Amino acid sequence: MSSVLYDLPGPRGRRRNAVIGVLATLAIAGLIAFVIYRFWKTGQFEARRWEQFKFKAVQMEIVNGIVATLQAAGIAAVLALLFGAVFASGRLSDRALLRAPSTWVVELFRAIPLLILIFFGYYVPLQYGWSIDKMWALVIGLTLYNGSVLAEIFRAGINAVAKGQSEAAYAIGMRKNQVMRLILLPQAFRAMLPAIVSQLVVLLKDTALGFIITYPELLTAGKTIGGRLAFGLPYVPAYLVIGAIYIAMCGALSAFAWWLQRRLTRVPKATVAAKPVPLQDVTRQV
């Protein structure tokens, strides 16, 4: 059996794929074991390097870093979604007066590296004597970059809906905003959800760039914890803990998105079952 794009392997091909899979697994396991060995060899697992994590003050540093990270990520996510929705609507407009500026803005901020946007958000106001909070400088950069990417995701998702859907809606007299709100968006949202969540995960991880402007997010807390000479400069233990926390937060966001997608695509069950008709009643009607 074969498909258009892929021929199913035969017995020799399956054996070859199995051997490649085993070798790849062994190579990855060997690499992980080597990294752990090097950590152990250089004393990264010494009790002294991990001792400070049992102190409440250090735990509160990590908690405060998590709160600062989630605060910046939450505000930037909401603003980026609004930015993306507005400029995606502009790019889909029939009027060139709206479509051209929206296209220019989206392409501009997609092309500028996020770090430069954060620098502009923080240092440019300072050049004119304006005081700006570090969190808002980070949020501005995250909003402009990720909002531009989300605008393209929204536009592509709406354009991916079959044209027959909108043509049928126009045929029954619906206006364009009704077609967009009632017909296209509900269908496109299900298709766009994985890409939207993926970009929000990127946004959450990009909050670590706030370290450059000394915003007290999670990575900044990890650098502070790892730079203490009394505990042997435990940078590796600190960054292992911080990395595990980032993985947990991104995993929780992905799990929520998976649950939401399953809920949105669930087919509703019929609440009232059809009652069986006795055979004698059918024969009477005939």
Rank of each mutant, 00 (worst) to 15 (best):
144 L>C: 11
179 V>W: 00
208 A>G: 02
209 L>F: 02
206 D>V: 00
139 V>F: 01
169 A>D: 03
133 D>I: 07
141 G>W: 05
208 A>T: 12
191 A>Q: 14
214 T>D: 12
206 D>P: 03
205 K>M: 14
191 A>L: 14
167 E>T: 06
160 A>H: 09
181 R>W: 13
161 V>R: 01
190 R>Y: 09
164 G>R: 09
160 A>R: 08
164 G>N: 08
214 T>C: 08
208 A>I: 01
202 V>C: 06
175 R>K: 15
164 G>Q: 11
167 E>C: 07
157 G>L: 05
188 A>Q: 08
132 I>W: 04
210 G>Y: 06
147 G>T: 06
168 A>Q: 10
175 R>Q: 14
159 N>P: 02
142 L>V: 06
139 V>A: 02
186 P>R: 08
178 Q>H: 08
155 R>G: 01
165 Q>P: 03
185 L>I: 15
153 I>E: 09
181 R>P: 04
154 F>M: 07
189 F>V: 15
198 S>I: 05
152 E>I: 09
178 Q>F: 04
188 A>G: 06
163 K>N: 13
154 F>N: 00
208 A>N: 04
177 N>R: 08
213 I>L: 11
206 D>L: 04
202 V>R: 01
146 N>K: 12
136 W>M: 03
214 T>M: 11
163 K>M: 12
184 L>A: 01
132 I>N: 03
183 I>A: 01
173 G>P: 10
169 A>I: 08
150 L>E: 05
180 M>N: 02
176 K>V: 12
190 R>L: 15
183 I>G: 02
189 F>K: 06
186 P>F: 13
194 P>N: 11
157 G>E: 07
147 G>Q: 13
184 L>I: 05
167 E>K: 08
150 L>A: 00
187 Q>V: 05
145 Y>D: 07
151 A>H: 02
194 P>Y: 10
209 L>Y: 02
151 A>C: 08
182 L>F: 15
178 Q>W: 07
179 V>L: 03
196 I>D: 02
170 Y>F: 15
